[in-house]
Each structure stands twice: as C-alpha cells, then as structure tokens.
Design a protein around this nucleic acid. Structure first.
Length: 652
RNA sequence: GCGCCCGUAGCUCAGCUGGAUAGAGCAAUUGGCUUCGAACCAAUAGGUCGGGAGUUCGAAUCUCUCCGGGCGCACCA
C-alpha cells in the first residue's frame, strides 16, 4: 500500500517536472525526520535548484501549486527551505489496508539464489560465533523468501580437512581408541559427542604445541582421508557425520534449517577439483612456477586479483602446493563454479534427515542415486562467512574472473560480518584465564583450537532455564510441558534477536548478562507486545463476544475520524510498512533493519496499549476501530517475527 | 609495510542512497499495577558524532590527513 502510493507520487512528480521544466529527473522520496512533517517528503527541489539555477523554495512552491491531484494524497506543502511534504488521505489509506488492496508483490524473476551459511568444521560443538553466522544467514534467507525469491540453503561440510584430522589423531594417538570405541562414544547419551570432540580438539592442539613432531599424525591422517582408506578414514567419517548431526540438531532448536549439505569428500571423489583444475590451466588463470619461493606450485598471479599495492611473488596465491595437493581456495573455486552451474558436473544426493515439518535435508554422495532433486546452478550466490576470510573470498571471485566468468564473479557476494568475541566480564565469569595481552584488549577472540568459547547448546540451555524461571513465577498453574514450550520460544526469541540487533560489521563482545536479558531492546520485549495484542482478542472471546466484522463496520469516513488522533495514525502507518522494511533490509543486506523495525512496532504498540483500554472503550465505532488495530498489529508483527525466525508464545 | 573494518550519551549500539531540532536500550533519578497482567509505560538528566582540513545551499554520513582500536595479508581452513 505504502509502496504503491510512493510509486504514484514519484511518477506524478517526475511527469510534471518533465512537462514543466523539460528535464528528466528521477524523483527520490524520503521519510521526514519528524512525524508532524507528514508521511513522505520530496526533496526534489534541492536537486533541481542546481540545474534550473533557481532557489529550491521557489521551485517547491511552483510544484505544489501546479501538481495535479494524486490518488491517496490529501495535501502537499512547502516546508523548510524547499522540502515538499506529503499528507496522505488517512481514511482512504486505512480502508485500503483493511480491504487488502495491497497487490501481492510480483515474484522475483531474477533467478535462484544460493545462500551458504553455518559451515562449521565438523570436529567440535558449535559456539556463539557459529550462531551469529547461522542466524544471520537463516534470517537473510527468510527475508529473501518473503520477497518472493527462490532460495537454496547450503551448509558446506569440510569433512576432510585439518580440523577433523586433528580430532581423529587425538582418538588414535592420545586416546588409543578403535572405531568401535568411538562408536560407543557417539551412542553415549550421557555426554554429547560434539562436546567430547570440543575438549579433545583442544587437547590435541595443545599437545602439538608441546610436541611439534606429533604434527605428522595430522599429515598421515589427511593422507588416509584423501585416499579414503584405513582406520583414519573410517574414523574421520564417523566423527564428521556425528558432529554434523549434532550441529543440525543445535540449529534446528533455533529454527535454522538447510536444503543440502555439500561435502568436501564428494568434491574430491567426484573429481570436481580435477575438472576445475583443467579449466584453470586451459584458460591460463593459474601458472606453474619452476623457480623462486613458489617453485613447484600452481599459483594465481597477484596481478589477476589485486588492482594495486604489492604484486609479484609475495602476493601470488598458491592454488596447488608443490606436493600436488590442492589448497582450500582451489577447492572453493571448484565449489563456487558448481554453484553457478559452470563446472559441467553435479553431485549425487541422498536424504540425510527429514525435519519435523517434513522438509527434507539432502547430503552429497559419490554413489549414483535415482530420483533425487537437483541443486546448484544459481543466478546469484551469497556466502555468509566472517570478515576475517574476506581475502580468501576475494581470491575465489578472482578465480572466476580469471576464467572469464566476470558476471558470476560479480554475483558471488561475500555476505560478511564481524566476529563474536567474549567480553572481559564474561571471561572472568567462565573462569577463563587471560594472558596479560588479552587483559588489555576490549574483548577476547573465541578460539575453537584453544577450546575457548561459549558453546551454542550451553547458551540455549541457559536461556531456556532463565526464561522458565520467569514463566514459572507467572504461570505456576500451567502444565510443565506448556511452560517449557513457552520458555523455549522466549529463549530462541532472545537469542535470535540478540544476534540480529547488531549490524553486520559491528564486533559483538558477547556478554552473558546482556544476552540473557529479557528487558528493553530484546526479543522477549517484542514477543510480549504480540502476546498483549493477542490477550485483548482472547479476552474478548472469553467474554462471549465475537470479533466484529471489520469490513462492514469500518469505512473510509470512520477511519478518517479515528485516525485524526495522531498517535493512532502513526502506529497504523508504521504497521503498514512491513514490506518496506523487509525490502530495505534486503537491499542493504542488513537483517538488523528488520529486527529494529520489529522493536519499533512493539514499542509503539506498548504505548498504544497503555493509552487505550480497548475492551473498556464505550464508543462503539472507536471500540471496533481499536480492536481492528490490535488485530492488524498482531498480523503485521507476526509476519515480521516470522522473517526474524521468532515465534510469539501463547502467553508470557 | 600493505589491505579491510571500527571510533556517535557513563556502557552497548541505531542513524537507509549527504538533508529539516543526532536517536534507542542499559545504567541513574522520579512517578505509575483497580487484571486488556509491570518481561510494561511515562518523565528527568546525559552528545564539540575521535581531532583537523576540504567538497556544497547543507556533512555523523563524501574526500584527504592525523590519532586511537580491531582483523587480515601461510605450500591452515
């Protein structure tokens, strides 16, 4: 609705400028800083001033005087030194919202988008840094889907890498465990396997520090994994599969789901790299070095991807090592090519798990399968990866460009975000000993290698526990199962909102006290507003009254009367902008915008809630109107919360 | 050394493509529960938008420079 009016205003003004001044000018609209300036501001006079060599205010006055009437607009006025402020016809606007005039937005035809997120090394439990990645990625996916875009969600599994190898080495050489022993650990419900690996990985890492010669375990294990034989390979598969299952379960607790898990093992076994390697050699995107420090390696020359700065051997990027083994970047180039359907190969797929809602998650396999879906071949790709890997992402895109795929390189988007670190206070709470250097820092980096971090499941458990205490205190009479369900919804709301309220390039210094808060700008605050609206409607039913038929009871005139009240109009206007908020967040790639929008809606509604006792309202028209506001608020906030992956509990 | 990011209220952060009096939350002080349940609301106080220069009708926002902090720059991923 709002977008339609904006469009017609922009078109009308542009058309008039064309006729009146003979210039083509894109008309941009703004949101006025202050609500009493109207609903929309047109700053076009400022831009025209230069071209027409005329005072902005004079141009604005001419435009206001001469513009033909625009549907839905009740008035235009000149303000400041050249703004044109637009006043909407409130009654007409509200009536339009009620009748659902807002035509469904046209489905996106730009093609499928792949969003890759989570990507946790399958050798340890997920921690808060991974949560930021998954929640950011999942929310972005929900935003895109809300806009009608086809999205495929991939979670890349590096099951043949160094990190898995280290844990395998730990099982073999530090714990002398057989595959049967490890199978028993995986089956043990008493201690989650990903937690076990968390500790073991830290132990192996510190053992390496004291015994550098032990690093040959890693080399041997990697070798075995690559050849796909021996106990090492067997253990690697067991570890990776079990840990991935744990990650999938952890993320499901937060409503994060995937479509497909592409695995590195298949990239290797199905010769994805070999195919990409041929392309790269053929198109001379990489070069074999016969001398210098990179002798024996295949490298991408720095000139290919650096515009300026250091070039030459130092800056060249090694793609294939002198021992013939491809680097991560090389594999990633192959994977990225596949995502765009440029590799000329595909994986086979088998079902990994069926989610409770029936959605199927697929995993890649090297064994031919029948009747499975197809993945890949997207028009655009978003890789949700933290900003520390910007350089590598840049090299991958450069690889595509070097192959001549400039369009695809441009459509390979590194959806970057800053890391989650630990606040000094939280480190103290967790009993983490800090080095002197760390103590001086404003925050401490999480490290899986050191086992330094807050595990995702621990945090979720703690949040649920806290929420449950509150729920228990308020609703002791309710069955425990129900209370736990509500507490879980609150916990998830708190966590998802916490991770989303920061813009992407702000470092989060994770602080327990802050993350566990349910007051102020938090998920539960927003959920509470939704619950309140629902309570009003439920109370109505409890009193044996039916929800009025809004369409017959409320017309343009009634709306105009009620919306003369400024705060009510402002609330309604804000509520009507869900799609605007989502579209803006998609354009800027900033899920935080949707989170903030939800918070503002909740804030406005809480204000309304205090100012207008809906059920006690005596005036019949006003009462119906207020009920409609509650109903409309509830439905608009639900849509917004759905995009954020947050549910509104039945009660709070 | 080179590259990227950040510096806004005591603290944590918003501020959309430069626009009209810089906004939230927390913390502080004060007031509000007669159930549409206070996980809330209202009010007060709190800012030279790191410093300086420039661009222009206009700069927290763009450019340059300096200061302070973070992260990258492996034959690890």
């Amino acid at each position: 609705m709002f977008q339609q009016i904006e469009k017609s205003i922009a078109a009308a003004v542009a058309a008039h400028i064309q006729i009146r001044y003979g210039v083509d000018f894109p008309v941009l609209l703004e949101q006025p800083k202050q609500t009493d300036f109207g609903e929309i501001a047109i700053p076009v006079a400022f831009q025209l001033a230069k071209q027409l060599k005329k005072a902005p205010r004079a141009i604005a006055q001419e435009l206001v005087a001469e513009l033909p009437p625009i549907a839905g607009v009740s008035g235009l006025e000149v303000a400041g030194n050249g703004y044109i402020n637009v006043r909407l016809d409130r009654g007409l606007y509200a009536a339009g919202l009620l009748s659902g005039d807002a035509a469904a937005s046209a489905p996106d035809t730009a093609g499928k988008i792949i969003v890759e997120h989570t990507n946790i090394n399958p050798n340890k439990a997920a921690h808060i840094g991974h949560l930021r990645n998954a929640i950011l990625g999942d929310t972005f996916v929900r935003m895109l889907r809300a806009m009608g875009t086809e999205v495929e969600v991939q979670n890349y599994i590096d099951n043949t890498g160094v990190q898995v190898a280290d844990v395998v080495a730990g099982f073999q050489h530090l714990e002398h465990k057989t595959p049967a022993d490890v199978a028993a650990l995986i089956a043990n419900p008493g201690r989650p396997f990903d937690y076990y690996c968390w500790d073991l990985y830290a132990r192996v890492s510190s053992y390496y520090d004291g015994h550098p010669e032990a690093k040959q375990w890693r080399a041997e294990t990697l070798h075995a994994i690559e050849a796909n034989q021996g106990v090492e390979a067997e253990l690697a598969h067991m570890v990776a599969d079990a840990v991935v299952r744990a990650h999938i379960a952890t993320m499901l607790r937060l409503g994060v789901v995937y479509d497909v898990l592409p695995r590195e093992s298949e990239i290797l076994h199905l010769q994805f790299w070999a195919t990409a390697f041929e392309q790269l050699k053929e198109r001379r995107a990489i070069h074999f070095e016969t001398e210098g420090k990179n002798a024996g390696c295949w490298v991408m020359h720095a000139e290919a991807f650096l515009d300026s700065g250091a070039t030459g051997e130092e800056a060249d990027k090694i793609i294939v090592r002198s021992n013939g083994i491809v680097t991560y970047v090389g594999k990633d180039i192959a994977y990225q090519l596949w995502k765009f359907g440029l590799l000329g190969k595909d994986f086979y797929y088998r079902e990994w798990v069926v989610y409770p809602n029936g959605h199927r998650l697929w995993v890649t396999t090297d064994q031919p399968q029948t009747a499975t879906p197809r993945f890949g071949s997207a028009a655009r790709v978003f890789n949700v990866i933290d900003s520390r890997q910007a350089y590598l992402q840049y090299v991958v895109a450069a690889g595509l460009r070097a192959l001549g795929y400039t369009k695809e390189a441009d459509r390979s988007i590194h959806f970057s975000y800053e890391m989650v670190a630990l606040s000094p206070r939280t480190c103290v709470e967790m009993g983490i000993e800090l080095s002197e250097a760390d103590q001086r820092k404003p925050y401490v980096e999480v490290s899986g290698r050191k086992g330094l971090g807050v595990k995702a499941d621990d945090l979720i458990d703690k949040l649920i526990e806290n929420a449950l205490r509150e729920v228990d205190a308020r609703h002791p009479e309710d069955p425990e199962e129900k209370r736990r369900e509500v507490a879980t919804q609150i916990a998830v709301g708190a966590l998802r909102y916490f991770m989303l309220k920061f813009t992407r390039n702000s470092v989060i210094a994770f602080d327990f006290q802050e993350a566990l808060s349910f007051e102020g700008e938090t998920g539960p605050y927003v959920q509470y507003a939704a619950v309140r609206a629902r309570n009003i409607l439920r109370k109505l039913a409890d009193r044996g009254l039916a929800l009025p038929d809004f369409r017959s009871a409320l017309g343009r005139e009634a709306f105009a009367r009620q919306l003369a009240q400024e705060d009510l109009w402002q609330l309604l206007l804000a509520l009507s902008k869900v799609d605007v908020a989502i579209a803006r967040a998609v354009d800027s790639g900033e899920p935080a915008h949707v989170a903030r929008y939800a918070f503002q809606l909740a804030q406005s509604f809480n204000n309304f809630y205090h100012g207008y006792p809906v059920l006690a309202e005596q005036d019949p028209e006003k009462r119906v109107f207020l009920l409609w506001m509650c109903d409309y608020f509830r439905s608009q906030l639900d849509r917004t919360l759905a995009v954020l992956g947050i549910e509104a509990p039945e009660y709070m």
